[in-house]
Simulated assay, not measured.
Amino acid sequence: MLGLLLLLQVLASCLWLGHSKVVPTFKTPCSQVFYKDTPPSDSLRPTNAARICQFYGNKNRFSTLYDRTNRIPVYSAYIYQPGKGGRSDSWFVEPQLINQKYGADMDTEDSIKKTKGINSADIGKNQAIDQDYSDAQGLDRGHLCPSGHQTGDGKTATFTLTNIVPQYSTLNQGAWKHYEDTTMAQKTKGCDKTYVITGAVPGKTKVPSGRVNIPSHIWSAACCLKGNKPIKAWGAIAENERNKNHVRNLELWDLENRLAGLYGGRGVTLFKNSCA
């Protein structure tokens, strides 16, 4: 009996670990963060892609399509639910991008090195590591799923480098912050639920380490529901350049058309039925 109680205590404690899992498709394990359980069209998917269900506290917080070659997320999809909670003191990486047999818990580099007996080069083969951003002057760790759009433990879950792109400080702390904090709060008034997809278009330059792509554009799209009925949708896009600090607010169709051009002319559909 005592052994059973100890086992139950261990299992209960494990429920509070952070989990993220590399999956072959979003459609079953973590589709609830997409409108109508439907991810964007494959036109955004890079050749060396990884789909990550970002779990924390035994709950799927958001989902990320990750580009292992450029070492940045293509997009993160989430439900807008801002609330109370603190920021994380740690940055996580994805163990299953190192080895599919590794556990599904988000973890820090130091912890992985200690438990797996590997080094930073092993960890960083298919993803960004802390050192990539430490030497990137003028560039912030830009959240695609912002901590400010989540609540409680959901905020901590956003502090994984698989959710981060090199974003110029002028934009991240200027017009893009205004969009995240103010414009989204205004536009979501009257919405019972808002599905969001925020992404980054790969650029032509890299951070000083030469390993992580600096996106040319940051974009975001939202689908607002009243009850179960979509009532409005919108988009936004910004050039990610050192001296640029402007966000262009768009209709959803306009954003999709612009992204089609930026992604080589391939049609882009972000929400099923265009959230109509």
Rank of each mutant, 00 (worst) to 15 (best):
Q100N: 11
Y133A: 06
S76L: 06
E94L: 10
R71H: 00
S76V: 00
Q100I: 14
L144D: 02
D140G: 04
G103Q: 05
K84M: 04
D132W: 14
G142A: 01
D105T: 11
Q131K: 15
L65C: 02
G142P: 11
G83I: 09
I118K: 10
S90P: 00
P73G: 06
D107T: 12
D105E: 11
I98S: 06
P82A: 04
K114C: 05
R141M: 01
D132N: 15
F92C: 00
T64F: 06
Y133T: 09
P95C: 05
N60C: 09
N119F: 04
L97D: 08
G103R: 06
P82T: 06
G138A: 10
Q81T: 10
G85N: 08
I72M: 07
Y78Q: 05
W91P: 10
Y78E: 07
A77C: 08
N119P: 01
N58L: 11
K114A: 13
E109Q: 15
K113N: 06
V93R: 08
V74Q: 04
Q127V: 07
Y75M: 03
S63G: 07
D105I: 00
Y80T: 01
A128K: 01
S63F: 01
T108K: 09
D89K: 14
Y80W: 15
S90L: 14
Y66N: 03
D130K: 13
K101F: 10
D107Y: 03
V74N: 05
G86S: 12
Y102S: 05
M106E: 12
C145Y: 00
K116T: 04
K116N: 03
G86R: 13
I118W: 14
L139H: 14
K125G: 02
Q81K: 15
I129L: 10
L97M: 12
F92L: 09
F62L: 04
A104P: 10
S88Y: 07
D135R: 14
A121N: 14
P73Q: 05
G124M: 09
D135I: 13
Y133S: 07
R61C: 08
D107L: 09
R87L: 08
Q96Y: 12
